[in-house]
Simulated assay, not measured.
Amino acid sequence: MLRVKLTKRDIHLLYDLYSNVFLSFEQIRREHFKNCATSTVYNRLSKLIKAHLIVSRNINLSANNLLAKDVGVIYFVTQIGLKKLKVSWHGEIFRNFPAPINLNNVFHDLLLTDILRELKRKFSYSVSNTKIMDLSKLNLDQIPDALVIDKKSNSNLAIELELTAKSKQRYREIISNYATNNLFDRVIYLVKDDGIIKKIGGIITGSGNHFEASEDTGKFEFINIKNLLKVQKSEVCSEL
């Protein structure tokens, strides 16, 4: 095992991997190695892998209208890396083991990371991926993809990323759970198309297929993720 002296950037990278469960090479490069050559990024990641602090795994995701570049590899922190992080990181770390990865949801979770970063950058929100949180004491009937604290309004937001529509019955259950939960002041649905908005909104208001975007949906709000990711995708395209 290679011995590596961790830099401040390494520590922030380990925490980023821990807090988002895993990251693509592009997500790592853009966040932690701005203006660095690709070879520099690969060399540093290779050293962290040889030190058993992080691990890579091959996947195969092609670029599309939401994903700016192909993703061939994801990286995640190891148990050894998490132990090192706990010694060096001054913030709170909830887990004793890295969060498990669901390979069936890789595309969803990569997008979630991009979106949460954009929300944090754009609105200065405090954002947490629920996969790394201890939610046992909250006794939640519905666990969102992420929790957001809006410090300006002192409110808690539940984030749900919807890439494919669920059944009407499932949405009724989810909406009922959120509607009766006082922990969340707002529930933000991040969706990829207006069809999902229409389906969920119709259930919330009782309008069904006649739902209009102007209708009052109470604590539930909708954001089209294509609009959120426009800036990021244009930046990536300008580098190609």
Rank of each mutant, 00 (worst) to 15 (best):
R3C: 06
K8P: 02
D16Q: 02
S19C: 13
N20H: 13
V21M: 11
E26M: 08
I28P: 04
H32S: 05
H32I: 04
H32A: 07
N35Q: 11
C36M: 08
R44Y: 00
L45M: 03
A51H: 05
A51S: 13
L53R: 05
V55E: 14
S56R: 15
N60S: 07
L66A: 06
A68T: 06
D70V: 07
D70F: 05
V71R: 12
V73N: 09
I74Q: 03
Y75M: 05
F76E: 12
K83R: 14
K86T: 01
K86Q: 15
E92W: 00
L103K: 05
L103Y: 15
L103I: 09
N104K: 12
D109A: 07
L110P: 01
L110R: 05
L111Q: 11
L111E: 14
I115M: 01
L116G: 03
R117C: 04
R117T: 03
E118V: 15
L119Y: 15
K120S: 06
R121H: 05
K122P: 00
Y125M: 06
Y125N: 05
S126G: 02
S128F: 15
N129H: 12
T130E: 05
K131H: 10
I132H: 01
L138K: 04
Q142L: 08
P144N: 09
D150Q: 06
K151S: 10
K152A: 14
N154F: 09
N156C: 11
I159F: 09
E162S: 09
L163Q: 12
K166P: 03
K166T: 08
S176Y: 07
N181T: 14
N181C: 15
N182C: 04
V187L: 08
Y189D: 09
K192M: 12
I196Y: 05
I197E: 15
K198Q: 08
K199D: 02
G201D: 01
I204G: 09
T205I: 08
G206N: 13
F211S: 02
E212C: 07
A213V: 13
T217V: 10
T217Q: 09
N227F: 12
L228D: 06
K233F: 04
S234C: 01
V236A: 13
E239G: 01
